[in-house]
Computed example of a mutant assay.
Amino acid sequence: MILPTPDQIADDARDLAVDTIRTPVLSLTSDRWRGILPDAASVTVKLELFQQAGSFKARGVLLGIRGLDAVQRRVGVVAASGGNHALAVSWAAQAAGVSARIAMPATVDPLRIDGCRAMGAEVTLCDDMPAAFAEMDRVVSQEGRAILHPFDGAHMTLGAAVCGAEYLAQAPHIDTFVIPVGGGGLIGGMGAALKQHNADAQVIGVEPEGADSMTRSLAAGHPVALDRIATIADSLSAPRAMPESFAVAQAVVDRMVHVTDAAMRRAMGQYMDVLRILAEPACAASLAAICGPLRTDLAGRHVGIIACGSNVSVARWQALMAG
């Protein structure tokens, strides 16, 4: 395992600047947050839901597409995803003129399925995320397509590291970062950039109670797979940890916490009530964590959270909020 270096991060940031968005950060100082946020020195959010394709995934996927050789570009790529990665792959592949196959659970928001197809991707619907990963592996063995894994790979780590470095440049005072975790690509890459800037910075991961492969993997000291996934946060529903992303996370994560589906629903409502943001559960996970399990631990800290992406329809959001 080799962490991305500051020079690599800076080079990739320059390469990505033309085609990605420097997403805004917002200091949560409005009086409307009073009684919601913890008693921290400050709380800042980076709004990655405004990124290309609607999530932080765009940077890493774009690096992955650019790293394909001529044969891989001709044959095409395949990915398994609950939605945000699928949309990022569809977007980047279309821009590069590369064929994309996407395996998705049939239960995901139709907005995501339709979005991938609108960008030219061929979508296969599966029973659940483990079945989607199995379909991805089948396509690789039968068609020879290149895998664009949703979180395991140097390109995904580097893309997330660029996001972390960008966040630091926009809000250098932050000393505690609370980051949602699915497979670990985001927290690994962001954590690598953050720790290189400030070795004393805290990097805290957030997983749903019903999809905590990284928490279990870090406790075991090796990647583990889940027998069952039960959470409304389909974007955080990785069925297993993978070696590379696990190793990076193991090197940079200081702590993991769980959030419940109910806590994510509350945070979704708070984003809507205060910022008028239609947040999917994963997008609200960091806010749920600082207002829940971390609430009493953040006094005096300058806290940075991330709204990692939000590809959710109004109908699905309303259904989720109804419980």
Rank of each mutant, 00 (worst) to 15 (best):
A70W: 07
L125H: 05
A92K: 11
S313M: 05
R74N: 13
A219H: 10
F151M: 05
V274A: 09
V18S: 11
A79V: 10
V248A: 09
T23E: 09
V253Y: 06
G210L: 11
A169F: 04
Q8E: 15
E207K: 01
L62E: 13
G269C: 03
D114I: 11
G189K: 04
N311D: 07
E207I: 01
A225K: 12
E135G: 00
C308R: 02
L111P: 09
P172K: 09
F133E: 10
D19H: 10
A92Y: 11
V303H: 08
L194V: 15
P239E: 11
R59K: 12
R301Q: 14
Q170T: 01
S42A: 15
D200I: 01
A219D: 14
Q51I: 05
H222D: 02
G153A: 12
C283L: 01
I290C: 12
A249G: 15
G184S: 10
G292F: 06
I36H: 05
D12V: 04
T260R: 10
A80P: 02
V178K: 03
A220V: 11
H197T: 08
C126P: 00
G67H: 12
V98R: 05
R145T: 13
P243V: 01
Q318C: 08
R138H: 13
S55R: 05
A233I: 04
T20Q: 08
D11R: 14
G184V: 06
L68C: 07
A251W: 02
L287Y: 04
W33G: 14
M129N: 00
A13R: 14
A171Q: 15
I65C: 01
A132Q: 05
A249E: 09
V18Y: 05
D11G: 01
A247D: 13
A93F: 11
Q8T: 08
A86S: 13
I102K: 03
F50N: 04
Q170C: 04
A41Y: 04
D15C: 03
I174W: 05
A288T: 07
A70N: 12
M214Y: 07
I21H: 13
I21Y: 11
G97E: 08
L148Y: 00
L62M: 14
G189N: 05
E244C: 01
R266V: 13
R138Q: 10
A13G: 13
L168Q: 12
H155Q: 14
L287I: 09
R216Y: 09
N198R: 15
A86E: 03
L287W: 02
A86V: 06
R255K: 14
S55H: 02
A249P: 07
Q202I: 00
D254L: 08
S81A: 08
D19S: 12
D127A: 15
A315W: 04
V77F: 08
E48M: 08
I290M: 12
T44E: 06
I113H: 00
E209R: 13
G54C: 02
C126F: 00
P150K: 02
L87N: 01
Q142G: 00
V78P: 11
D212Q: 10
F246E: 07
A13P: 05
A118R: 14
V18D: 13
A211H: 02
S81T: 10
A103E: 06
R14A: 15
A93W: 10
L148M: 06
R138W: 00
